[in-house]
Simulated assay, not measured.
Amino acid sequence: MSQPFSLQPLLELMQNRADEATRQLGQLIAAEQNARSRLQMLEQYRAEYADRLRDAIAQGMTRPVLANYQDFLARIDEAIGQQTAVVRQSESNTSHGQQHWKEQNTRLKAIDTLAVRHETRERQLEEKRAQKILDEFSARKYARGDTKADD
């Protein structure tokens, strides 16, 4: 009879941790993509607004209107700066999440390797037991003189 893998609870725990790390990494990657998308949208909006300002300057405008354009561009630039910081933080979080995911999977693979070795060892023991039983059966049969050849 084969013995159960004594580290099975640990294997299951490591599988759960690896699954959780995978889920978290997926969330971090999604958050990073979202932050990049927002940054790209702000940069595109700023470029469009700067084009409008150039067009308005070419057509002529009053100082208060120019000041409003410049003030709004400054606020967009500030938002871009803040979003750039969010993207950098998100990149850092994703990097840490990737490292955590790698560590969890390395640990899982180590325990899984032990489980595979255990299964192999148990299978070999079972095969030896079965061979021993066959050998004993053959030895008894031979000892009784039941060695007729079937023609």
Results as ranks from 00 to 15, higher is better:
109 K>L: 11
97 G>N: 09
107 R>N: 03
119 E>A: 09
103 E>D: 13
121 R>H: 12
106 T>M: 10
94 T>C: 05
100 H>F: 11
96 H>D: 15
107 R>Q: 06
119 E>M: 06
86 V>F: 01
112 D>R: 11
80 I>A: 09
90 S>T: 08
112 D>G: 12
107 R>F: 04
119 E>V: 07
108 L>V: 04
90 S>C: 06
122 E>K: 05
84 T>H: 07
79 A>C: 00
77 D>S: 12
89 Q>P: 00
89 Q>F: 02
108 L>H: 04
99 Q>Y: 13
96 H>Y: 13
93 N>F: 09
102 K>H: 10
89 Q>I: 04
113 T>K: 07
118 H>I: 08
78 E>T: 12
102 K>Q: 11
120 T>S: 13
121 R>P: 03
86 V>K: 05
121 R>Y: 07
77 D>I: 01
114 L>H: 10
100 H>E: 15
103 E>L: 10
113 T>F: 04
109 K>R: 15
110 A>P: 02
105 N>D: 02
107 R>K: 03
81 G>D: 09
79 A>F: 00
81 G>V: 02
110 A>T: 11
81 G>P: 03
103 E>M: 07
100 H>R: 14
91 E>H: 08
90 S>A: 15
88 R>L: 03
105 N>A: 05
83 Q>I: 03
118 H>E: 02
111 I>C: 07
93 N>G: 02
87 V>L: 00
105 N>Q: 06
107 R>C: 01
78 E>K: 10
80 I>Q: 08
94 T>Q: 08
81 G>W: 04
96 H>G: 14
114 L>F: 14
98 Q>F: 07
100 H>N: 15
92 S>D: 12
113 T>R: 11
98 Q>E: 13
86 V>Y: 01
120 T>W: 11
117 R>C: 04
84 T>L: 07
100 H>S: 15
97 G>D: 09
106 T>I: 07
99 Q>N: 04
122 E>R: 08
96 H>M: 13
99 Q>F: 12
112 D>W: 08
87 V>W: 00
98 Q>K: 12
108 L>Q: 10
84 T>W: 06
114 L>S: 05
98 Q>I: 14
87 V>F: 00
109 K>A: 15
92 S>R: 14
115 A>D: 01
101 W>R: 08
79 A>M: 01
107 R>Y: 06
105 N>I: 01
83 Q>S: 04
84 T>V: 05
113 T>I: 03
105 N>P: 00
82 Q>R: 15
78 E>Q: 12
103 E>R: 13
116 V>P: 00
97 G>W: 03
